[in-house]
Amino acid sequence: MEQKFEGTPKSEIRMDGHKLVRTEVSNDWGSLLRWVITQNGKEVNVHNARPMLNYEPKLSTKGSHEAVLQMWKYVDYKKDAQGEFTNSKFVEVSNKIAFTV
């Protein structure tokens, strides 16, 4: 029996000083939840968001950044020759916020 996942996960994020803060995730699928911080569309920091509701990223890149929460969306376990999933993927489950370092 494949696992079923109910609903669409949703969380709100905001900045509080230097910290990223998230709400509890509604319709939480229970898979990996992570902070993803990008600069000019390129990932510069990825961090497990499960342990706490806030996260203070240590960024070596200066300037404008964008943060979002992503959750692993399991569709099936198929993988390509490199071992990466082909159909399952990370999806965004929060609003995006911009901040400057």
Partner: peptide, 19 residues
């Protein structure tokens, strides 16, 4: 039987941990 570390990290461990 193609489960790997990625399955553990992204699905199995979090799912178990939470439940």
């Amino acid at each position: 039987l193609n489960n790997t570390y990625l399955d553990y990290e992204r699905l199995l461990c979090p799912q178990f941990d939470i439940a």
